[in-house]
């Protein structure tokens, strides 16, 4: 009874928010005027800004959820199975591939392919040890959880939590370039997964998700900018990402303003957003993104 009264109370509170603005306005996302942010400017980004940007990368778990919603079958073809963790020598390669395999792990876990996940986990462990962050990866626990499907929730939690801890540790210890690489790896693999599935299974939800990456890519480039001239590998990767940015340049993402509404569903409180983002992307633009996303990802995983 008390819970119900509180729900009603909150609905009233949110109704007050709703009264503040009844008009619906629109806005658009555009890349900054300059083609790229000068390194000197990027280096001036505060730690807090970098922290915010690095947190602003969506998870491949969400892409896997869209795939399941669209009834896209699981396929090993989307995995970066050519990565041989024992052959990688530089921190650049290890951190980047740690991100790529992390995205694959999310995909495998969401499809409950816990058996295959163990192989990926073995590589992940090697890579994490290789950049001295293996202590955050509770490999034995994850491996045990992988052996039983009923532990899936726990498995998802621990594996994702390990990545979050590694990322935070790297940034706290001034190894931001490795954190940026790991985040880039996760993003590239997620982008590859989404675009290649889209090629085979046209789906509006997934198509919009690919288009929305314009916003994320902009942030990713900000995160990478301070390191783009630090090595030839970084320079090459940054150039590739800039090319991808060009493919996204004319895609229009508009926003409509609205006020949230609250509803009760099965005794739980749910806030429904009425603000909306909308993607306008034609087929030619999409094909360009699909082709280049694959090219960048393949170049990175084949370059062992």
């Amino acid at each position: 009874m008390i819970g119900r009264l509180l729900i009603i109370g909150l609905i009233v509170i949110l109704s007050v928010f709703s009264c503040k603005s009844s008009t619906r306005k629109t806005a658009e996302f555009v890349f900054p005027a300059a083609d790229s942010i000068p390194v000197s400017e990027a280096e001036k980004l505060s730690d807090e800004a970098i922290d915010d940007i690095s947190k602003n990368m969506s998870s491949p778990v969400e892409i896997a959820d869209i795939l399941q919603r669209s009834k896209v079958p699981y396929s090993t073809n989307y995995l970066a199975s050519s990565i041989d963790a024992s052959r990688l020598s530089t921190s650049f390669e290890k951190a980047l591939k740690l991100g790529i395999l992390g995205a694959d792990l999310g995909y495998l876990n969401m499809y409950e392919k816990t058996g295959t996940a163990i192989d990926v986990l073995t590589s992940i462990k090697k890579l994490a040890d290789g950049i001295n962050v293996g202590q955050f990866f509770d490999f034995e626990t994850i491996k045990r959880l992988s052996l039983n499907r009923s532990n899936l929730d726990s498995l998802l939690f621990i594996s994702k939590n390990s990545y979050n801890q590694i990322d935070k540790y790297l940034r706290d210890k001034g190894r931001g370039q490795l954190s940026a690489l790991m985040i880039t790896g996760v993003w590239i693999e997620g982008q590859y997964l989404a675009t290649q599935v889209l090629k085979q299974n046209p789906d509006t939800l997934l198509r919009n998700r690919v288009g929305e990456q314009k916003v994320i890519l902009n942030d990713l480039l900000l995160l990478l900018a301070p390191y783009c001239k630090s090595s030839s590998q970084f320079t090459s990767m940054c150039q590739n990402m800039q090319e991808l940015k060009e493919k996204y340049r004319d895609i229009v993402i508009s926003y409509t303003v609205g006020d949230p509404i609250m509803v009760e569903k099965n005794g739980a409180l749910v806030v429904k957003q009425t603000e909306e983002s909308k993607v306008e992307m034609n087929n030619e633009q999409l094909v360009g993104i699909i082709v280049l996303s694959r090219s960048i990802r393949d170049k990175l995983i084949l370059n062992n």
């Binding site: 569903k265 005794g267 739980a268 409180l269 749910v270 806030v271 429904k272 957003q273 603000e275």
Partner: peptide, 14 residues
């Protein structure tokens, strides 16, 4: 509201 320690959000804007 309790007893649920959570609140859900249906997102419409990326």
């Amino acid at each position: 509201p309790n007893p649920n320690p959570y609140i859900d959000f249906e997102c419409q804007k990326t």
